[in-house]
Amino acid sequence: MKRLSMTTSLTRKDPNTMCGNDLKLFVRRRAANRAGSAIFDRMQVIISVSNLSKSYASGFEALSNVTLDIRRGEIFALLGPNGAGKTTLISTICGLVRPSTGRVTVGGHDIITDFRAARALIGLVPQELTTDSFESVWATVSFSRGLFGKPPDPAHIEKVLKSLSLWDKRKSRIMTLSGGMKRRVLIAKALSHEPRILFLDEPTAGVDVELRQDMWALVRDLRETGVTIILTTHYIEEAEEMADRIGVISKGRLILVEDKVELMRKLGKKQLALHLDQRLEQIPAALAHYGLVLSDDGHELIYTYDAKKEHAGILALLRGLDEAGIAFRDLNTSQSSLEDIFVSLVKEEQ
């Protein structure tokens, strides 16, 4: 303990031995550092959900003690089977569902006591294609901007419509548009008031490939401008493609929140397939502890291993094979997809 404090006083300046100016500077810096890190922490988190539960009169618990921080500027994917509580969670944050217990803040503003400031930051694209019918695209998007408390800004609306390839349709009645175009209109409405946070509830459900790719590109562009994006999806490849972090929700419980890469690394099982030169009758006893699986035709050996230990395991195995005189002509490795991880997680939960 003593030694530790000595080393720190050697590397830093000991306040006791400082002269007046030094000391002032030190105090100021330390205060600035402390304030800085507190502000930094606060700034990092844009949505804070703590102990959020939602139960209905029927007794059904849609959300159960959910605690989650969304970081500023990230793309967060919320995965879960149908009825898991994804939409309920989003709806609660956006003010459509009343929480039973717990607290949510958006940009530091409580969603109930300070709902104006909180909601002004949010753009919501709902799952269903709920649009007006008789209004023009331009009118409905301008309406949304006003609704969220922003003065009219035709230049911004024009920019949004152009970015969503809706400019040519601006005078069309919404009812005359295709489903994909209506989806774009909903996104334009959500972006009309320049939100800092965008919720996309199943954005690509029932959407063709072109629109899906457009949507992904749009989400990336938005992230470039510092918008935080929270999306729910069934499509694992969407989360895998887009997200920085992933949350898995099942039966109202948030069972996991993890950095995507980390999640893949942690939970992703890797498989090494070795295509053998010659048919192998059985696995040598010396290699038994690897848990190898030999294919029926005896020409392929499959080694399933934990991605975290990959180096030691593979090298030792290859050496072992060499010593046992087993030669192979090809090898390939594969990593389990997010889908496999997701399925196994949800199964575990059930």
Partner: peptide
């Protein structure tokens, strides 16, 4: 009926 009320309920409006 149309479902567009979601927007009204999620807007910063009292």
């Amino acid at each position: 009926f149309a479902g567009t009320i979601y927007e009204l309920l999620s807007a910063p409006i009292s």
